[in-house]
Computed example of a mutant assay.
Amino acid sequence: MQGAPNLTHLHDFDFLVGDWQVHHRQLKARLAGSHEWIEFEGTCSMHKLMNGSSNVDDNVIEKPSGTYRGVGLRSYDPVSGRWAIWWLDSRDPFANLDPPVKGNFVNGMGTFYANDTLDGKPIRVRFIWSHITPTSAQWEQAYSPDGGKTWETNWVMQFQRIR
């Protein structure tokens, strides 16, 4: 018999509903000792689905090497009280989806983890949502080659709401 659903974190991503201008900073090479960052612009538009238990965002990413799109798909699990987040990239739309990062928000900061691979080697992936206000937010991605002992932040996105 299943217990009562845990809806504590169901509204974690409500802040992201709407349209955003996004400034990206991305490390040129990941887990390679690089300190060179590239900066570029983009947009994000997020909508709730399934009565709020999932949501999707459509991202336009204007990298200097070329513009592409990405879709972030999130789904809430009322049993665990956690969110799962997948990424679909238009540059390889038939690729398998990355393993989802899973987590939730505590004290205004969302932290999500997954195990993945980079160049055939196992890594740990971390997403952090922070600095959330009605008109701004920050997302960052970090990789760990040592099971989470050390982290390299490789992508930071600054969101500004489009009015």
Rank of each mutant, 00 (worst) to 15 (best):
D92E: 09
G103I: 08
R74K: 12
V125P: 00
P78Q: 04
T135Y: 08
I38E: 08
D12G: 10
T8Q: 15
E140L: 09
S45R: 12
D92T: 11
K121R: 15
N55I: 05
F94P: 01
H47I: 15
D116S: 14
W37C: 09
K149G: 07
M157V: 01
S65E: 10
A142D: 00
H47M: 13
F40A: 10
Y76L: 06
V106Q: 11
L16C: 12
K102N: 08
D57H: 07
G108Y: 03
K121P: 00
S34A: 14
V17N: 05
L16R: 06
A29G: 08
M46I: 12
N96H: 05
Y68R: 05
D116W: 03
K63Y: 09
H23D: 15
I128S: 10
W87N: 12
N154M: 01
W86P: 12
W20M: 13
T133R: 02
T67N: 06
R126Q: 14
H11L: 09
L49S: 08
W20A: 11
F94R: 04
F15R: 05
Y76I: 04
W37F: 01
G147M: 04
T111S: 10
D14E: 14
G110A: 03
D12V: 10
E39W: 03
N51F: 12
T133H: 11
G18S: 11
R161S: 11
N96C: 06
E152H: 00
V17I: 15
H9R: 12
D116N: 10
G72M: 11
L97Y: 11
N6C: 07
R126S: 05
E36Q: 07
T43P: 08
Q158D: 15
S136H: 07
P5N: 08
W139I: 01
T135F: 08
L31H: 02
P64Q: 09
N55M: 14
G52P: 09
E41C: 09
F127N: 14
S53I: 08
L10I: 14
E152W: 00
T133D: 06
F40T: 08
G70D: 02
A137F: 06
E39A: 14
C44L: 13
M109Y: 00
Y113K: 03
D14G: 13
N107Q: 06
V56Y: 14
G70R: 04
G110D: 04
D77L: 03
Q26H: 05
A84K: 15
F159S: 09
N96V: 00
F127D: 07
H24R: 10
P78E: 01
P100R: 02
F105I: 09
K63I: 06
R126E: 05
D146I: 05
Q2R: 13
S130K: 14
G18E: 12
M1H: 12
Q158L: 13
C44I: 06
F13T: 07
L73Q: 06
L27E: 01
